[in-house]
Design a protein around this nucleic acid. Structure first.
Lengths: 154, 154
DNA sequence: ATACATGCAAACATTTTGCTTTGGC
DNA sequence: GCCAAAGCAAAATGTTTGCATGTAT
């Protein structure tokens, strides 16, 4: 059972066209099902489980993609760097569109599950470079989640 | 299949006694199996899966706790704040002892799986307070993982 | 002696795969 | 028409639970 994620606004600057273009460039075909999946991801305000994506894709295209289709499509998109996993420390994995111009740090309420995207100047950017140098790692990325209790929860 | 985690040194300052004390104070009984589980966690240099804990507990006590026992014991310890989950973005959950005096940020090689514990002054501490104020959240904690390619991987 | 802890095995949830059919190009 | 994508259903994996038995207190 996947926890239902509540949302907080966040505008999207990646377009359906651009994303589709990347997929095509990689030799993947654009289908109605994939359009729905991509739209679901583009319009999400917080990370989505595969089930979430499946339901929302249906809203967009009136076609419900099979769960395996969502799984494979999202997997392919992940390989292309178009989406990334987000760990909300729950029983299933969540995904989010990767817009290279943005940061994806989250603030999660331990009580109600609300997820807030913290799209502020990243406090990590500098540390990341230092760490890369210090430990000899390359191509660093990070995943940062804050957990706490939101103002409306006890 | 749980990915095998390689390790990097990290001294432990929590003791078996102290941990056992906390468990007893919570009304839990100290058994040989639990000693092994706690020792496995205390001596780990990086996050352990439940299977890892099971195997290492056996090394310590010559008694192999059942997987369900490890599951329940670690779960109980988590509720008491003695351990916490670590998301290495793999198929299973990893756990780590929670020493309140330490930070638990990790650096993970995407290629070989090596996990390095970055036990340096936390780059987040300040941001955490700001975020708490700004979003009205309380009791914040965070989980920070860096992913990259280590010096020995292509 | 009494509860709590354990082991065993089954139930569950989620992820992943194989294979046939459908549909984009 | 060809080959990738989708659907269906089964397998695989990891997590969680129920219950009878063992054991710390």
């Amino acid at each position: 059972m996947c926890f239902q994620v509540r949302m907080t606004p966040h505008e999207t600057s990646l377009t359906l066209e651009k994303t589709a273009e990347t997929l095509r460039a990689a030799g993947l075909r654009m289908t109605k099902k994939r359009f729905g999946i991509i739209q679901a991801l583009l319009e999400a305000n917080s990370p989505l489980s595969l089930q979430d994506i499946q339901s929302r894709a249906e809203v967009h295209t009136s076609l419900r993609p099979d769960y395996a289709t969502v799984f494979r499509t999202v997997g392919a998109m992940e390989k292309l760097g178009l989406v990334h996993k987000v760990s909300l420390q729950r029983s299933c994995t969540y995904y989010e569109i990767s817009d290279p111009r943005k940061h994806y740090d989250h603030l999660v309420c331990r009580q109600c599950g609300q997820v807030v995207l913290i799209d502020i100047p990243c406090p990590i950017g500098e540390a990341e470079k230092t760490i890369a140098r210090q430990y000899g790692f390359r191509e660093l990325s990070h995943s940062l989640e804050f957990f706490g209790l939101c103002s409306t929860c006890p």
